[in-house]
Design a binder for these strands. Structure first.
Lengths: 349, 349
DNA sequence: TTGAAAGCGCTACCAT
DNA sequence: ATGGTAGCGCTTTCAA
């Protein structure tokens, strides 16, 4: 039994501009003019139209509008997993910033799956989105080949793509975080606190973002009298990854004085292991992360982290979309990251 | 300088069904038939059309399709904050389940703001979404009035709304978690472990979901010889909320034997405070939460929790949308929650 | 200041 | 099996 279709009257049906026009005894053109504030309309008619719109709760059909305008106000957003707090943080701020400028966001999880990712891009092309924002996934993999680059660039010819990974060989708009200055800040801080023997923990070398973070740390450690251990215990980017990697590290004959984890989740996972093993943070070992998740400041001890400026990141993305038609195709924009020191690396906290 | 528009050729332009038809020397109707597999088409023509589609990377314009079909494959999803892991978890699974059935999801953060929330609903109505899934926000507030109910029900006449909060007086489809059985499980477990003096921590009484959780605990405690403290220290639903509430609780002349936190984030916040104060979990005090966030099983000790079955929840939502035209308007569906015991409440862990 | 009508890309109906 | 065409709801000329 179709309950929904029983007893519908005009109030329940979606009303169109035609009906408003008929009731106001004007043309649809006139109604369109008052809706969009384009062109003059006699006050009396205008009022009547506005009244009708109010009375019947009329909303212009954005689909029809998008069809005729040949462009929509929808932005496609791809992340591997929205339940990963870093991506959720970026998306959250982006949605808020975009909403202010009249955009609505489609969100898809690529699940780091190649085929899925392609399907999503197809979907976004079909949906005629205004732009596609692309985080993680294949993009973040060092091993992407010319074929993949071509696939992306081909789409980019039809629909602007914003990559949130720094890929020099990819010709599309890119927004990503600066790593050099913040790495310096972290090294300087750790050095000042007396941590000189440091290990890196978590992440995979073939992930661009990871490689970049590691590179900046390794290349600049010398200047602060810090030595970075050659062996990096790798792991995925989750708390569990941090657990596993830290269990491994704790087997070392000689613990490092500090560990720089690839992100806050891994840092939290590592921290948890120290509790199990009765290792004291930061006295026995200091721990730092990246991203500055909410939780990082509220657990004990707080996690020192290279913070992502989520708001600035989101603004940069939306701004780029806003101006996409007036900028060079390969425009790059970086967002500043900055160090936040907390108990996990402060001996006299 | 508009770089994007320089040197475009036919490969870069979005191609339409008309062009495919012309090149294949058939009518658009025929092309449409092969695209949608509706009606017979001569094999030769079919192949030629398919070739052309491949060659020019043609994708049907979903906007035009949606306009003519008078319905889209888009679902609107409203949450207060997608960077809250519980909502992110539900959304994540819903997007995956929905994608399998050809839906794409629009996601908006209501930021628990009344005006914003209304705007979002307007946006979704304008966007002609197939259904609107609604979590938290005003919906979850006890104090919603008849006016609000009317607003929602009015929209529900045009577009199916799925409420993820149990609201008896609201006439729309609803999907929410069962609380009774899982409360029983938790009480039974705590009782068996010897925790009889228990306090509730976090949340606000005027939030429906919170009130329901508390009610099921309070009403069933007796049966397990458990006494629930009358005073509930309230807080928001974050780790920080857990910090603040726990600091307050730790001032009590006599600590309870266990605390049931309103969610895992609050539980984690509470746990962190115990580290600061050198209170042992679970020996001095046991801690449990709700939701079963990923992190809850990987910190130390693991957090005992009443787990949300995210996948089942998502399936229920998408299933409801799929069948929305064939079910009664006020259809309710519940998702089973179940207890997961971890170190935070297990004395001999 | 206003309206008639073309057209956005697609599907579905009606002919053939 | 195939094509012509109306029409989805809207905006935007072009005339008046």
């Amino acid at each position: 039994m179709n309950v929904r279709n029983v007893g519908e009257n005009i109030m329940n049906k979606k009303i169109t501009i035609i009906e408003i026009a008929e009731m106001a005894e004007v043309s649809t053109a006139t109604v369109s003019r008052v809706i969009n504030n384009t062109g003059k309309v006699e006050t009396g008619k205008k009022e009547k139209i506005l009244e009708l719109i109010e009375k019947y709760d009329y909303r212009p059909n954005q689909i029809a509008k998008a069809l005729q305008a040949r462009k929509s106000n929808t932005i496609g957003f791809v992340v591997p997993h929205i339940n990963s707090p870093y991506y959720a943080g970026i998306f959250y701020e982006t949605e808020i910033a975009a909403k202010k400028r009249g955009y609505t966001l489609l969100l898809c999880n690529s699940e780091a799956d190649k085929r899925l990712e392609s399907n999503i891009l197809d979907t976004f092309v079909s949906a005629n989105v205004r732009a596609i924002v692309f985080m993680g996934g294949r993009l973040d993999d060092m091993s992407i080949d010319k074929k993949y680059i071509n696939e992306i660039e081909k789409i980019n010819k039809k629909i602007p793509i914003i990559s949130c990974v720094d890929i020099p060989e990819l010709n599309c708009a890119q927004v990503y975080q600066e790593q050099k200055i913040s790495a310096d800040e972290l090294l300087k801080h750790l050095s000042k606190e007396g941590y000189k023997d440091i290990a890196l923990l978590g992440g995979y070398a073939n992930i661009r973002t990871t490689a970049k973070r590691r590179k900046e740390i390794i290349e600049n450690a010398d200047r602060y009298g810090i030595s970075i251990r050659k062996d990096i215990i790798e792991s995925d980017y989750s708390v569990e990854g941090g657990n596993v990697a830290m269990q491994e590290l704790l087997k070392s004959p000689q613990l490092p004085e500090a560990i720089i984890c690839i992100n806050d989740l891994v840092a939290i996972g590592a921290l948890s292991e120290t509790y199990k093993s009765n290792v004291k943070v930061p006295d026995d070992i200091a721990i730092s992360g990246y991203d500055n998740l909410d939780i990082s400041s509220f657990i004990f001890p707080g996690i020192t982290t290279i913070a992502c400026d989520y708001k600035a990141y989101a603004e940069a993305i939306v701004d780029m979309i806003q101006n996409i038609d007036n900028i060079a195709k390969n425009t790059r924009r970086t967002v500043q990251a900055n160090l936040i020191v907390r108990g996990s690396t402060k001996r006299n906290a």
